[in-house]
């Protein structure tokens, strides 16, 4: 391998590097994008801007934690956005700007996320519907339910102490929002789940080759349903934090997180066909997404031009990461 490496062209070598460690590559891309942002508007290099990048990246990372697990297990979850929005509405409704309701809320939101995840999982696995269609149909139903239950305008705000626990600055430092504390709980949890638990090993095995997994005595249906349940729970938790960050909620507030989390996870090198991927990659991918949107803001582009850029950049990223095999080989 190393002897042939010297004969590779620069393009091939960079491709190899990218495929070897997509997470490293994503961090590099994020760095480059941020450098461009700073070059365009030097004013954006300040502590509070970095703080908001950290905040949004962590939010997206937590949302994409479940998506990573589902994708590694060979599925796909488009319900992340709808679950997040619903959890945000639950947060503002249950808390209603009063302290001391965190644990009932946590219980309600996680139960909601787990129920949706269970529904997604059962419909995908037991009945055999394709994940893309079923999660989309279910998330549509959930979105409609938000409108029905709130009459289109959710009430209330997150409680002051909860808001403080997410947005206040640690040690008075502008670039350390206290959402990091939540991250310190969630991120090791995901790493433990994926890399050190039996469940994680089984998810990788299932994604890599379901038949082999089944023959090795893995209950593949249960594992796959569990991946969706975890995805729903992580999304619900991210929705709660998001509500605290946004202060108030409206219907469909976090719907775009469904696609954003998917793209972040793919940029992080998790494959669509399952069995390959890391959570480090997903965090790096989230960082790329946030920095990219920051860059577009810094360029002072109008919304339509921003949309065009966003789409084109997504296509370029896909070209780097997700091309299918040539027909002629």
């Amino acid at each position: 391998m190393s002897s042939t490496k010297s004969t590779l062209t620069l393009g091939q070598r960079s491709k190899l590097f990218m495929q070897k460690s997509p997470a490293r590559m994503a961090f590099l891309i994020a760095l480059v994008l941020y450098a461009i942002t700073v070059m365009i508007s030097p004013g954006s290099l300040n502590a509070s801007a970095i703080g908001s990048i950290v905040m949004l990246t962590l939010l997206l990372s937590i949302a994409s934690a479940g998506q990573t697990i589902v994708l590694i297990g060979g599925g796909m979850d488009f319900g992340v956005g709808a679950v997040m929005s619903s959890a945000a509405i639950l947060t503002t409704t249950i808390m209603n700007s009063q302290d001391g309701r965190f644990f009932p809320l946590l219980f309600a939101a996680l139960a909601m996320g787990a129920t949706v995840g269970l529904l997604n999982g059962i419909c995908t696995v037991k009945i055999g519907l394709p994940p893309l269609i079923v999660t989309m149909a279910i998330s549509n139903v959930i979105t409609r339910m938000q409108y029905v239950l709130t009459q289109g305008s959710p009430m209330g705000y997150a409680s002051p102490s909860f808001i403080k626990s997410v947005t206040s600055k640690l040690f008075g430092l502008q670039f350390l929002p206290s959402i990091i504390l939540y991250g310190l709980i969630i991120i090791p949890l995901v790493f433990y789940l994926l890399n050190h638990s039996r469940f994680g090993k089984q998810v990788y095995l299932l994604g890599n080759n379901p038949v082999a997994a089944r023959l090795n005595g893995v209950n593949i249906n249960r594992i796959q349903i569990l991946t969706y349940v975890f995805s729903g729970m992580f999304a619900a938790f991210a929705g709660m934090l998001g509500a605290a960050y946004m202060n108030a909620a409206r219907c469909q507030i976090f719907d775009e997180y469904a696609y954003n989390s998917l793209i972040a996870v793919i940029i992080g090198g998790t494959s669509f066909s399952g069995g390959v991927g890391t959570y480090t990659g997903s965090i790096a991918g989230s960082l790329v997404m946030v920095v990219l949107s920051n860059l577009l803001t810094a360029m002072g582009l109008a919304q339509p031009t921003r949309n065009v850029f966003m789409g084109l950049i997504m296509i370029v990223l896909l070209i780097f990461y997700n091309r299918e095999k040539k027909v002629r080989q």
Partner: peptide, 19 residues
Amino acid sequence: FRLPALLASYAMTYVIRGV
């Protein structure tokens, strides 16, 4: 470019919306 059709056409949604 042989991109996954679902994701690529979703990205195109952004472009066309902008246009």
